[in-house]
Simulated scan of single mutants.
Amino acid sequence: MIQVHSYESMGTFDGPGLRLVVFLQGCNFRCLYCANPDTIASGGTATDAEEIVRMALSQKAFFGRRGGITFSGGEPTLQASGLLPLFRRLKEEDIHICLDTNGSVWNCDVEELLLLTDLVLLDIKEYDPVKHQKLTGRSNLHTLKTAEWLELHDKPMWLRYVLVPGYSDFEEDIRSVGRDLGDYRMIQRVEILPYHTLGVHKYEAMGIPYLLKDIKENTPVQIERAQELFSCYFPLVYVNG
């Protein structure tokens, strides 16, 4: 059974084309800016893989040649063993699969899951390990190793980078991402995700403090500067949202 938090039909922000987005429950990161704090704890709705296949098939006519299904979260790779039969079924039905992951979980099931994935949306939260630890509560070592593995195994990926003022918008760190990963053939694009506070009401409803309440959303100048920096190393850089 798959532990599901929620679904989004006809999503346009999590991979190419129109997509069914499945948000899974549970995450091993504690990102200070997390917009979905209700997906962090374990639990969710136990869902049979075939139910998700049926949902995808019911929407397949709308996917066209570019769309498909995206698994987000939470952190999907925490449920890798349960997702494997589902991914195999989706491949049988010729449905394009995206996996949105922080790249921090690694085991045999995750490796097989990535081999079945058509496109990985790899979230790089910050390059500097100390700043990454402060921002997420976890190391970024495995994330960078996952990027290397995807490159070596010819798996297409999009890099996603949330631009948080004062936490992940440092020029030297953005340039470090470019110097380290800029020559990767399998990186099809970089997506800058501007920082937002749309999830703050969830913290209030859950009775937990939002620790970045004093951080303002990015200015157009900040976003443009980050796009310029990434463009020094990557040919396709987009602002998502």
Rank of each mutant, 00 (worst) to 15 (best):
E224L: 01
S42Q: 05
D128T: 02
Y233C: 07
G82S: 10
V200P: 02
A61Y: 15
G178M: 01
A56G: 11
L24G: 08
Y33C: 09
D118Q: 12
L86Y: 03
Q25R: 02
T143R: 13
H201S: 12
T45C: 13
V130D: 00
H5R: 14
A147H: 11
G103L: 10
L141T: 15
I52C: 09
Q79H: 15
W149A: 13
L198H: 04
L211H: 07
S58T: 05
D48E: 15
P129D: 13
Y238C: 09
L57C: 13
D154S: 11
Q3N: 07
E191P: 07
L212H: 04
R89W: 02
F23I: 08
R54G: 13
K155D: 08
L83E: 12
V110Q: 15
T101Y: 05
E204G: 03
L163W: 05
G166L: 06
I223E: 08
I208E: 15
E217D: 08
H142Y: 00
E204C: 01
P209C: 11
E75Q: 10
E191G: 05
K213T: 12
L135R: 06
D123Y: 00
K216S: 14
Q25S: 02
R138S: 14
I223F: 08
G68I: 03
P194K: 04
T101F: 03
P37Y: 06
C232Q: 15
D180L: 05
I215F: 00
E228N: 08
P37S: 09
D169I: 04
R88G: 12
R185C: 05
C98V: 10
T12P: 02
T117L: 08
S72N: 01
P235C: 14
R54N: 15
E111C: 05
I2R: 12
I95M: 03
E191Y: 01
G67V: 03
R225N: 12
K145Y: 14
R66L: 03
Q227H: 14
R89N: 14
S104W: 04
D214S: 13
S6N: 12
K131I: 04
